[in-house]
Design a protein around this nucleic acid. Structure first.
Lengths: 200, 200
DNA sequence: CGCCGCGTTGAGCCACGTCAACATAGGTGG
DNA sequence: CCACCTATGTTGACGTGGCTCAACGCGGCG
């Protein structure tokens, strides 16, 4: 487990905080702890809201999204964040004097689009939801194909509001159909075809 | 249907635009049209994303939330907004020179909390989802009771990702249990008990 | 009055949840 | 290196919550 590097000192000298790498499955920060805001350079982040009855999936952040912006107001994180794909984060410097309204507005607009995506992942048939989630997680490569770091079933299930068993069946089907390539159980990258016939 | 009052002229002289009232069920603005950002003073707003395959529920805005902030960037609305309870909107003046970073940050934090609420409304059993939605829509009154402007079933169904039939059954049950009072078919206000036993 | 949109309710069915058994990967200690 | 353990993923069998389809009631409106 990585230490939370965000301290008041870190806030004062963000330039010393460079790219932060988080392994898949690891927690990025806990709710209620102190820290700074980050921009997701690559990977995928799951946000959870902590309630008295446990923690619930509360949002998704992908490449370009900002997480933990509330620390600029409260000093503490409101949600818990965990990496569901290998992540690179960079400190988000909208804070302090350099706070740009335009940048904040863009972040707000992006957050609203992302929230709409997250909602859409909870509607429709199971197979379609899982397919859409894979699409969101996919990154384009030079050769035109897409690669996807498959999150744990637990996370995919929470995001789509399905059970792990149902997600597993959908993933098996995507593999059987040739849309996802490479073995099933293997953690790590999987390829989606470049062929438009593989609509993914 | 109310006319869309938001025009470039309106943007230049927002002070002339005062409280805007929208009747339940009416559209507030359409995606792609020009306009300004609004703060929801009361009521509830449903946001929809327009795609080639029609429009999909994409978010919820309640008292205090800001809608249409993306117009400050693009000049146009990205989503469609409709009132699902009688609404009062006021122009949101974070625009132009008066743009305050703090206010923007608060709006961003509120949007993220609201997005988490919206996601939670799509998890759990049908009855519980409908109950939670009613809770979100309820306003406290002086006498300690709560009043709720019941949206159309169509909207409650879209928000909770249930069918109208299922939502109707859940609402009937809430009424049978005495948690919601007043008749069923009647459009308009319904009361929830103040008694904590009526957990709603 | 007749029509239309909305809400209500019942009957039957099916997609997904539940439960369980098993497979495999990865870690840990010998 | 293997033995073992645990966490995770896979797959089948079965049950059920909510969807589908349909009929009906009611209110509003031309």
């Amino acid at each position: 487990m990585q230490a939370i590097m965000a301290t008041p000192v870190a806030v004062k000298a963000p330039s010393t905080l460079q790219l932060r790498r988080i392994a898949i499955g690891a927690r990025i920060y806990a709710a209620g702890t102190e820290g700074i805001a980050w921009r997701v350079k690559s990977g995928a982040v799951r946000l959870d809201r902590i309630t008295t009855e446990g923690s619930n999936y509360a949002g998704l952040a992908l490449r370009g999204d900002v997480i933990g912006a509330e620390t600029l107001l409260f000093g503490k994180y409101s949600f818990e964040a965990s990496a569901i794909g290998d992540c690179e984060l960079e400190p988000w410097l909208a804070a302090g004097r350099a706070l740009s309204g335009e940048s904040l507005l863009q972040t707000l607009a992006a957050a609203e689009r992302r929230a709409a995506d997250a909602l859409a992942l909870r509607a429709g048939e199971a197979f379609e939801r899982v397919r859409q989630l894979c699409l969101l997680l996919a990154q384009h490569r030079d050769d035109g194909r897409r690669e996807i770091a498959i999150p744990e079933l637990r996370d995919m299930a929470a995001i789509t509001n399905l059970t792990e068993a149902t997600v597993s069946r959908a993933m098996s089907r995507l593999r059987r159909m040739g849309i996802l390539q490479r073995q099933g159980r293997r953690r790590g990258l999987v390829l989606a075809g470049a062929d438009p016939a593989f609509a993914l």
